[in-house]
Design a protein around this nucleic acid. Structure first.
Lengths: 224, 224
DNA sequence: AATAAAATTTAGATTTGTCTAAAAATTTTT
DNA sequence: AAAAATTTTTAGACAAATCTAAATTTTATT
C-alpha cells in the first residue's frame, strides 16, 4: 500500500535536507558544487553520496546534470524540517533557550527516529505553525502555511510591517535583533530610505533606529 | 585544570554504558564475552572497540584480563545514564508515553550533545530523582539516591511493600504489570509463598493475586 | 601435568563516509 | 570553433565500526 519508509543514515538525511533547500531556493536541480558548499565538504564526496542516494531512489541523479529529490526523498526532507522546527519550538518555549541557541541542538534532535515521538511532541506544543525564527512548520502530511512576507528592504517609505521571519539564521544576526529590541511580531514603520547606502530609518514603538541595508535584506516583515 | 572532555562517538558511548552496567552488576572487570553479549555483537568486534577505548583512556584494558572503566570513562557512562533517564521522564510525564514505550527513544536521545540541554531539561522536569521505572537519576555531579529496596521474592509472608522498581525492563514485563494494576508506588502485602513453585499470593488493595516466582524476582519493593 | 574446552585475540574483509589528486565532461570565453 | 575555465567524476586511500575464520591464550577437566 505505502512505499516502505526508507532507512536513512544521519549523513544521508543531512544531504537530503541540503538538496531540498537548494532546490527550494534556486527553483531547479541542485548542482554537485552547490551541495558541496552547503554540506561544507568536497564535490568528490558529494558525488559518492549522490550515487548512494540514487541507489535508494531518494534522488534522481544524472551524471554532470545535477540532482533532484524524488517524491520519497522530498518526504524525508520535509519530515526532517518538521522535526527540526518542532524541536526548536520545544527548546525555546519549554526549556527557555534563546532563539540563537537552538539550531545545533535541533540539528541533532531532528535525526531521532520515532513517528509517535513527533506526533506526541506536536501535541505537547499545541501544533505550532511557526518555529522561533518565524519559519513555517510542515504538518504530518508535509504541508505548511504560506507566509505573505517581504524583506524589510522592500518596504515602501511610510509603510508598516510586523517582523515575521529572518533570512539569516546566524546567532550574530539574531543577537543583533535582540539588542535592537526586534523580535517576531515587533511592529516597524519604515520612515525613510537613504539613497546613499540604502540604509533605512525606522520607527519601532516610540524609538527611531537606523538599520543597514544588510539588515534590511535579512529581515522579513508582514505588511500591516 | 579539568581534563578535556573526551569526544566520543555513539558507538563508543554505548560500549561504555554496557561496561558500566556489567561492572555494576558483577562487581568486577567486564569480560570481552560479557560485553559482546550485552552489545549483541561478536567478541572480535568488542576487542577492536576495547583497543580504541583504551587508546582514549576511557577504559583500563589488559589483553585476556577484561576491562574496567577509568574515572573518565565512568563519568561518560554516568552522564549517559543521567540523560537517558531524564529523557524517559520527559517522554512519560510530558509527552504521555507509557513506561514500556520509552526505552528505544531515550536510547537515541541520550546521545544528543549539549550540557546546557541537560541542565535545562532537568530544570524543566523539576529535578526528578527517579525515572519512570524507578531507577535513580544521577545528578549533574554524577551522584544518585540510594534505593533501599528488595525483590518481592524476598519479602516475608505478612510483610508489606510499595513497588519501587523493576529488574526486568522489557516491554512485555511492564505491560504485564500494567495489566495486573501494578505500578510504581502500588502497595503489596505478601500473604503466602507456595512451596511448590515459589509463586506468591499477594494482596493489592482489595484484590488478591497470584504472582509467579519469575515476577517476584523481577519486581522490587520498598518495605513498609 | 597433559588435554580438552572456553574465551579471547589476530588477520583479513566489508561498508559508510570521507579525503586528495588526476582525469573527464561541460560551460564560458575568445 | 577552438581554447580556457569551471564543474564534475573517477581513482585510490583512509578511519570507524563491523564481520568471519583462524590462531592464541586462559581456564577447566581428567
Amino acid at each position: 500500500m505505502y512505499p516502505p519508509s526508507p532507512v536513512t543514515t544521519t549523513a544521508e538525511e543531512n544531504y537530503l535536507k541540503a538538496i531540498f533547500k537548494i532546490e527550494e531556493k534556486e527553483g531547479k536541480a541542485a548542482s554537485t558544487n552547490a551541495v558541496a558548499a552547503a554540506m561544507q565538504t568536497t564535490p568528490a564526496s558529494v558525488t559518492d553520496m549522490l550515487k548512494r542516494l540514487a541507489e535508494k531512489e531518494l534522488i534522481a541523479y544524472e551524471k554532470y546534470r545535477g540532482v533532484q529529490l524524488t517524491e520519497q526523498g522530498s518526504q524525508v526532507a520535509v519530515s526532517l524540517i518538521r522535526k527540526h522546527r518542532l524541536w526548536e519550538v520545544f527548546l525555546v518555549n519549554k526549556l527557555g533557550f534563546a532563539w540563537d541557541e537552538v539550531h545545533d541542538i535541533a540539528e541533532q534532535l531532528e535525526h531521532v527516529q520515532g513517528d509517535l515521538l513527533v506526533t506526541r511532541l506536536d501535541d505537547f506544543l499545541d501544533h505550532p505553525q511557526f518555529d522561533p525564527h518565524g519559519d513555517p512548520i510542515p504538518n504530518a502530511e508535509g504541508r505548511w502555511a504560506f507566509r505573505s512576507q517581504i524583506l524589510l528592504a522592500n518596504l515602501l517609505p511610510g509603510a508598516r510591517g510586523a517582523v515575521s521571519g529572518v533570512e539569516d539564521h546566524s546567532a550574530p544576526f539574531l543577537q543583533y535583533l535582540d539588542q535592537m529590541g526586534l523580535r517576531l511580531g515587533t511592529e516597524i514603520e519604515l520612515l525613510e530610505r537613504m539613497a546613499y547606502d540604502q540604509s533605512v530609518r525606522v520607527r519601532v514603538g516610540v524609538r527611531e533606529l537606523i538599520l543597514s541595508e544588510k539588515v534590511g535584506r535579512h529581515l522579513y516583515v508582514k505588511s500591516l
